[in-house]
Design a protein around this nucleic acid. Structure first.
Lengths: 247, 247
DNA sequence: GGTTGAGATAGTGTCGACACCGTTGCGTCG
DNA sequence: CGACGCAACGGTGTCGACACTATCTCAACC
């Protein structure tokens, strides 16, 4: 998972282009990518002085970048307190996946209604590419194409409100999803899910597509939770938690 | 619809308390209430100089307040351009209601699962109060209690992610919903919908509750669209559109 | 008359300074 | 030995200034 990939995806998911000055975009991408990639740990302080020094700017654009990430749930800010990298609890993660499952169901139903044959063919091409990546065991490549696939689906459906909410939820689970995909056999299962979903779309069976994507989401969630539990057990032995922002 | 009511609801829906300095909160509430109440027209400029003069502050807290409202979809900001009051298109409104319908369905299902008898009794009290207000033709009173009812429901369900998304969607439709309720007979229909929903909850019928709230949302949307069309036709004759912020 | 461009105007983005407050480390007291 | 309080430190929120640019005005030109 290269930093560059992450930045490009962040730029789209956060709708940064043209909405903010390049300086703010740069900072938001660096911090956001850091959080997604795990370079910045949950709970870690993100003080604006350090960040402004790092980017050789004043604190104003730093504050703005952090506010952008706050609204996407990657950063937590309280008045007069130092901003921190968000630390979602297991319950938060369950809640997010629950909403995500529901909205993805909706998305699948709309996709069946609204995607024309050409668009479905494009999605088919994407899934085939993902199949190859999965067979080759390329977790990173598969991961990014997975993100892209869902992004494309929301575009095809053409409901910007829905897209925005799904993007926000996707962002919050980005690092988690990558985690889940590293589990043995998960890659193959995931690509199977995508193929079944696409087939249902091609057969114009909205009910089935909804059910399939809901099932796939539940399985993805389970993979993430199992992996988290495993990591948590491992980390229990050395519970280090940095407090200063990386400099 | 008093300004004070609006501010209190905004404060909760925007989660302002403790998240921002009082100064920022004050500005965000004034602008937000202005948009919801229609004092500030869609598309109107919100330049930070005028606003800072009005509140006797610098532009920094103004910018922060506007960013808060931007993330809730009440204000539109592009880099280097003046912020504007958001002007949702009819299509945007359809999209928002579509997502809202879906999430409210989910909410109803969860409510049936998770609300205990005591909580249902509390909701019953609220609905009865709303019945009285509806009978008395008190549009404003009914409106705010309606907002409060849904807020309470999301709290009972206990999924903060869902609550936050529903709150955000609620905000975007606040002024519209009030508009819809002014239509003849709409108040009575609305309270009927609420009673049916609550009854389904008391009978622990999740499927029915979901269906009912989905239906109610569709009807609310229709009322809003009809009222908008009517207003639009009326406004077509004198298409004034202020460009300066009120001062 | 309508279009185009230059100059004036007005508003945004960023900065460094400063006042205020949360935090931390240390000394004091029970 | 631990709880408490105090003072120094560090970080946040706000300000006024300034550079840059979108926007408006108006005049010259076709």
């Amino acid at each position: 998972m290269t930093d560059q990939d992450t930045r490009l995806v962040l730029e789209r998911l956060l709708r940064l282009r043209d909405r903010r000055e390049p300086l703010v975009v740069q900072i938001a991408e660096w911090v956001g990518a850091g959080i997604v990639e795990g370079r910045l740990e949950p709970g870690q302080d993100l003080n604006s002085v350090d960040l402004s020094r790092r980017f050789e700017t004043s604190r104003t654009p730093v504050r703005e970048a952090l506010m952008l990430l706050e609204q996407e749930g990657l950063v937590e800010m309280k008045a007069r307190r130092r901003p921190r990298v968000a630390a979602p609890t297991p319950q938060d993660i369950r809640d997010i996946y629950q909403v995500r499952k529901n909205l993805l169901s909706m998305l699948a139903g709309l996709l069946v209604e609204r995607a024309d044959d050409e668009e479905l063919a494009e999605l088919r091409t994407r899934v085939e590419r993902m199949r190859k990546l999965a067979d080759g065991g390329d977790v990173d490549g598969y991961f990014w194409n997975h993100v892209l696939l869902q992004e494309r689906m929301t575009e095809i459906v053409g409901n910007p409100t829905l897209k925005q909410i799904l993007d926000s939820l996707a962002l919050r689970t980005l690092m988690l999803r990558h985690l889940g995909l590293t589990r043995a056999g998960r890659l193959a299962h995931s690509v199977d899910d995508q193929e079944r979903l696409l087939q249902a779309c091609e057969e114009r069976d909205g009910e089935l597509a909804s059910a399939l994507i809901a099932g796939a989401t539940v399985r993805a969630q389970r993979a993430v939770e199992e992996q988290l539990e495993q990591d948590g057990a491992a980390r229990g032995r050395k519970p280090a938690r940095g407090r200063r922002a990386a400099s």
